[in-house]
Computed example of a mutant assay.
Amino acid sequence: MTTYAIQVQGLEKSYDRLRVLRGVDFAVARGSIFALLGSNGAGKTTAVNILSTLLKADAGTARVNGFDVATQAAQVRESISLTGQFAAVDEILTGRENLVLVARLRHLNDAGAIADDLLRRFSLTDAGARRVSTYSGGMRRRLDIAMSLIGDPPVVFLDEPTTGLDPQARIEVWQAVRALADNGTTVLLTTQYLEEAEQLADRIAILHQGRIIVDGTLAELKRLLPPAKVEYVEKQPTLEEVFLSLVGAGGKDGDPGGPRALLPR
C-alpha cells in the first residue's frame, strides 16, 4: 500500500460554463488530518463529492485507499465514510438507537457493543438513551461523526463539520476529529475557518477559484508570508477632546478661571 491514502492529480470539473475545479493536485498521508481550506464556492464540496464517488470528474485522476474513484468506485465506497455539512441523524431515535441502526444496515455483528463503544469514545454514554431531539448541536455532530465510523473506514471525509456551531460545540467536534487521527484514521476535512485548519490539520491546502494556490504544513505556509511589522502611532487629541477633558477637571463653581480661560477670545 502507498504511503498516501488520497492522491489527486489534475482534477477538473465544470457545470456548463462554470469551471469549479481547475487542475487540482494534492496528496494526503495515511493517518493524517488534511484540511482543504477555502471560501464558499471555492470548490471544496465538489472535490469531496468526486473523491467519495458521488460525482464524476471531467478530467484528472483520483485514488482513495489505493483505488481509482472512476474505475473502482465500489472499492472506494467500502473504504470511506462521508459526513456532510448537515448532521444526518434521526431525531426520533436515541443516540444509541441511531448507532445500532447503522451497524445493522452494514450487516455487522454485535451492533449493540459497537454502539456502546462509540458512545464511550465520543463522550456520549450518559446521553445514549436520550432522543437526539434533545441533543445540543455539538452532541449531534459528534454522534454524526460516530455513525460514520461504524465499520472502521480507513478514510473519513468531513465536509465543513463545524459550520453553524457555537464555540463550545466546535471544540467538542475538534476533539472528536483529533481522536480519529490518533486511532489511525485518515481525515480529509473542508473548512472556511483558518483557525480550524490550524488547530487540526497536519497539512493545509488553500483552494481558491478552483485551484490549489498553496499546500503545506502550517509552518511552511507561515514561512511563505512576507515579514511584517506593527507600528504604534499615538493619536493626537483634537481641540474638542482637550477642552472636554479640562471641563471634566474644572475649577470651583463661579470661578471665571479654570478651563473657560482656555477658550479663544
Rank of each mutant, 00 (worst) to 15 (best):
P237C: 00
A47N: 07
Q72E: 11
V64I: 07
D202L: 15
A70D: 07
Q199E: 14
I212D: 01
A47E: 04
Q236N: 07
A115H: 08
L21I: 07
L149I: 05
G258D: 00
L51H: 09
Q236H: 00
P154S: 15
K252D: 12
E12T: 13
A261T: 15
R30T: 11
E78Q: 15
T125P: 00
A113M: 05
T71I: 05
A176I: 04
G84L: 03
D68I: 14
A169C: 12
R203T: 06
A59P: 05
G112D: 15
V233S: 12
D215R: 09
S52K: 06
L143G: 02
A42T: 04
A115S: 13
F86H: 12
V173Y: 02
W174R: 11
T94D: 14
E97T: 08
K222Y: 05
L149W: 05
L36N: 00
A62N: 13
V100N: 10
T134R: 13
G112R: 06
R260E: 09
L118V: 10
F34G: 01
I204M: 05
P226N: 04
I171C: 00
L54H: 12
R141D: 04
G216V: 06
G43N: 03
D255K: 09
A70H: 10
Q192F: 14
Y135Q: 14
A201I: 10
G38N: 02
E172S: 15
L118T: 13
R170M: 03
G43Y: 01
L54N: 13
A181R: 10
R131S: 04
E195I: 09
T61Y: 07
V187A: 04
F157H: 11
L224Y: 00
E97V: 05
N40P: 01
Y4V: 03
V89I: 13
Y135F: 15
A62C: 05
G151A: 13
T2Y: 04
S245G: 15
R211C: 08
A57C: 00
L188E: 03
W174M: 09
L207I: 09
A113L: 12
K56W: 12
T53M: 08
S123F: 08
P259I: 01
R211Q: 15
E241I: 05
Y15L: 14
R178N: 15
D90A: 01
L158G: 02
G95V: 04
I171W: 06
R96N: 04
P154Q: 14
D255I: 06
G151F: 08
A29K: 14
M139H: 11
L200K: 02
Q85T: 10
A57N: 06
Q85R: 09
P226T: 08
G151W: 06
G31A: 13
A127T: 04
G216L: 06
Y193E: 10
N183F: 03
L244Y: 10
A197M: 07
A115M: 09
G250W: 04
G210R: 03
L105V: 07
D116F: 06
V214P: 03
N40I: 13
V156N: 05
R140W: 00
A113K: 10
K235M: 06
L55H: 08
E196F: 09
Y232S: 10
